[in-house]
Computed example of a mutant assay.
Amino acid sequence: MKFSNNKGKETNKNRKKLGMPHIYVILFIFGVLATISTYLIPSGEFDRIKGPEGREMVDADSFHYITAAPVNIVDFISIIPRGLIEAGEIVFFTLIIGGMFMVLRRTGIIEIGVDKLARRFLNHSIFIIPVLTTVFAIIATLIGTAELSLVYIPVIIPLIIALGYDSITATAIALCGTVVGFTVGVLNPINTGLAQKLSGIPVFSGIGLRLIIFIIVLFVTILFIMRYAKKVKQTPDMSLVYQEDTEKEKLIKTLLNKNH
């Protein structure tokens, strides 16, 4: 019996050690899979034609297969830096915004803001979810900067944890809110304005329908996040990041106490 108990404890320890791989490991694995797929999936392309105002468009009826050009080891190594160069505007914009939030964090403004919001929503903490989700969705549906959701997450995590929820709730607020706004694109110049211009229809036409869809989808999203958040607050140990958030909560309380 003693032997079986020890064996059970060792099994539990081994289970606890298993966790999510580092983000760079995940990206590397996806890169390898994408590279291998270039040797397995046939290559094809569409012809490009001139569209409105001389813009290049895809001819939907022109698909044809071409000679495959699989990714070699040199391309695999250089594809990330080349991607950073091609997406330089978005990358640097995100870095600048992230740097701005880091400066604010070092000055203590974010901690003070978290403390103020946590105290204001202390008795009605669940209402912080629709407020923040709506704000992020409106920003994304007007400006079209979906990548800013990655900047919002570390900013709101201390607030959400201080209110008794977990970091998954904070991530859902930032990501789901931003994705809803960007996908619907009520006045988004990137996915709505450009697409309508290329299609030859009045820019931002159909705004009423998109606004109705935006409200419905946002409402469903908020209900989904609130439902999960209530479960986590009632039973904290059901969260997949319970142990990590417990350590963060201690650090957050220490920082908030220093402000008083």
Rank of each mutant, 00 (worst) to 15 (best):
L187Y: 00
I110V: 09
A174V: 14
K116N: 12
D115F: 01
S239Q: 05
A69F: 05
I36S: 13
L211F: 06
T145V: 12
K7S: 09
D61Y: 12
I36D: 13
Q196V: 00
M1K: 07
G144C: 02
L175G: 13
I112L: 11
L104F: 13
I215L: 10
V114E: 01
I168C: 09
H22C: 06
E147N: 12
I79S: 13
F3P: 02
I215W: 04
N5Y: 07
K17A: 10
M226W: 03
H124A: 08
V186H: 02
E249C: 04
A174E: 10
V180E: 02
A137G: 03
V217Q: 05
I215C: 12
E86V: 09
I96L: 13
S37N: 11
I156G: 04
T221P: 04
V155S: 05
F28L: 15
K233E: 05
T145D: 06
G185Q: 01
L122Q: 14
G193L: 01
H22W: 10
F101D: 12
R106V: 08
M226F: 08
A229N: 08
G181D: 02
T171D: 08
S62Y: 10
A172W: 03
G181F: 00
F30R: 01
I252A: 00
G181Y: 00
I77L: 15
I23T: 15
R119D: 12
I126H: 05
L104T: 07
S43H: 12
I207E: 01
H124P: 08
K7H: 06
N259L: 13
S62W: 08
I143T: 06
A34T: 09
T145Q: 10
D166K: 04
L95G: 09
I215P: 09
R82S: 07
A146M: 06
R55F: 07
M226E: 15
L198I: 04
V25E: 13
T141V: 03
F219P: 15
I153P: 05
D75N: 09
G164C: 06
G144H: 02
R105Q: 10
T107K: 15
R82Q: 07
A34L: 11
S62T: 10
G8F: 12
S37A: 14
I156Q: 03
R15N: 14
L142T: 06
K7T: 11
I207C: 00
F3E: 12
G144A: 03
K17P: 02
P81Y: 04
D61V: 07
E247L: 00
N72A: 07
I161Q: 00
I222Y: 02
K231T: 06
I26R: 04
N12R: 15
G200L: 04
R48P: 04
N12C: 11
S167A: 12
T94D: 09
E45H: 08
A87S: 13
E147R: 04
T35S: 14
A140Y: 02
H124N: 14
P42A: 06
T246E: 07
R106P: 05
I80L: 10
T38L: 11
G206T: 01
G164Y: 01
N257Y: 01
V58I: 13
E56D: 13
V184H: 01
I49T: 15
N188Q: 03
P236R: 07
T246G: 13
M20T: 11
Y152F: 15
E89V: 09
D166F: 04
L84G: 04
E111F: 03
L33E: 10
I138W: 02
I96D: 08
T38A: 11
R48S: 14
V186Q: 01
E111D: 11
